[in-house]
C-alpha cells in the first residue's frame, strides 16, 4: 500500500497520458467516420481533411435510409448475425460444457482438430466452401452464411465457453445433484445462471464477427436483396465515383446494433457472479 501511495505524480500523469493517447488512437477512425458522414457532399472534397467541416448535414443519412437498399442489407445482416450468434453460442455452450466436465476418449484429439481448423487462411478454403454450398443448393441464401459462419466460429466459441464453465466450481453442480437435481437440472438451475456473463460475451463476440464478415458474404451472395451489410457497403462504390458521405453514414448506422448489443450485455460481462460461491 505504502508503495502505491508514494507513486510520484509524474508517473500517474504519464500513465493517464498513455491511456489517453491509446483511447484517442482507437477512437480516431470512429470520429472520422462520423465526421465524413455529417459533411455535406459539396464540401467533402474541399474540406475533407479538416477536423470539422464548415457545415453539417443529415442529408447522407436520409439518402441512405430512404433512397438506398440499406434497410434490406441491414435486416439481412441482422438475421445472419443473430442466427449465427444464437446457433454458435448454443452449440459452443454444449461442447464447452462437455469439454469442461466430462472425461471421454478422443477428447484431446477433438480439441487438437478444433485448433487445427483455426490455422487455415480463409482464402485457402473459400473455393471448396463455395463448391459445397453450391452442391447443396444453398448459394445466394442467408442460410448458407449462417451455416458457414457458425462452423467457423464454433471452435473459438467452444474454448471461450469452456473457460467460463471451468471457472464454475464443480462443487456447485455436485451440491445441486445431492439436492435432488438431475445433471441437466443442475445445469439449467445452477450452472446456466452463473454462465450468463460467458454466454453474453460469446454472443457478443460471434455477433460482431458475423456482422462484419465480408469475404464469404461476397462469394456466396450475389443478388442485391440478399446482401449483407458489408457487401452492401461496396455498392456505394460505383464505376466512376465513391459516395463517401453515404458510405460513412451507412457505416455509422451499422455500428448501432453492435453498440446496443454491448450496452445490453455489458452488465453480464463485468459482473463477477461467482463471488461468494465457495469460501473466499
Amino acid at each position: 500500500m505504502a508503495s502505491i501511495r508514494r507513486t510520484p505524480a509524474l508517473l500517474t500523469a504519464l500513465k493517464y497520458a498513455a491511456l489517453a493517447g491509446y483511447v484517442g488512437f482507437a477512437l480516431f477512425p470512429l470520429y472520422w467516420l462520423v465526421k465524413i458522414a455529417l459533411t455535406p457532399e459539396r464540401v467533402i472534397f474541399s474540406e475533407g481533411t479538416q477536423l470539422w467541416p464548415s457545415a453539417v448535414t443529415l442529408e447522407n443519412f436520409r439518402t441512405v435510409l430512404f433512397h438506398s437498399d440499406f434497410l434490406a442489407f441491414f435486416s439481412n445482416s441482422l438475421m445472419v448475425s443473430l442466427g449465427t450468434a444464437a446457433a454458435t453460442t448454443l452449440i459452443a455452450a454444449a461442447s464447452g460444457y462437455a469439454f469442461s466436465r466430462f472425461r471421454f476418449s478422443g477428447k484431446r484429439l477433438i480439441i487438437a482438430v478444433m485448433l487445427v481448423t483455426q490455422m487455415f487462411p480463409l482464402l485457402m478454403i473459400i473455393a471448396p466452401i463455395y463448391k459445397i454450398v453450391a452442391a447443396i443448393g444453398l448459394l445466394n441464401s442467408l442460410t448458407s452464411l449462417i451455416v458457414v459462419y457458425t462452423a467457423f466460429n464454433i471452435p473459438f466459441a467452444t474454448f471461450l465457453m469452456q473457460s467460463f464453465f471451468d471457472a464454475i466450481p464443480k462443487d456447485l453442480e455436485e451440491a445441486a445433484m445431492m439436492d435432488g437435481c438431475t445433471r441437466f437440472q443442475a445445469l439449467r438451475k445452477v450452472i446456466v445462471p452463473l454462465t450468463l456473463p460467458g454466454l453474453g460475451a460469446t454472443l457478443g463476440f460471434v455477433f460482431t464477427a458475423a456482422w462484419s464478415e465480408l469475404l464469404f458474404a461476397l462469394m456466396l451472395i450475389n443478388s442485391n436483396d440478399r446482401m449483407t451489410f458489408p457487401v452492401g457497403l461496396l455498392t456505394f462504390v460505383s464505376k466512376f465515383s465513391v459516395d463517401w458521405g453515404q458510405m460513412m453514414a451507412a457505416g455509422v448506422l451499422a455500428l448501432v446494433p453492435s453498440c446496443l448489443f454491448f450496452i445490453f450485455i455489458q452488465r453480464y460481462l463485468v459482473q463477477g457472479l461467482t463471488t461468494g460461491a465457495v469460501k473466499g
Binding site: E174, A176, G180, G276, V278
Partner: peptide, 18 residues
C-alpha cells in the same frame, strides 16, 4: 446421488451464488 436421500455439506460450502 439425488435418489440416495443423503445431504452433504461441502468443504467449500458450495452455496448457489445467485
Amino acid at each position: 446421488p439425488r435418489e440416495r436421500d443423503i445431504a452433504m455439506v461441502f468443504q467449500s460450502y458450495a452455496l448457489y451464488p445467485h
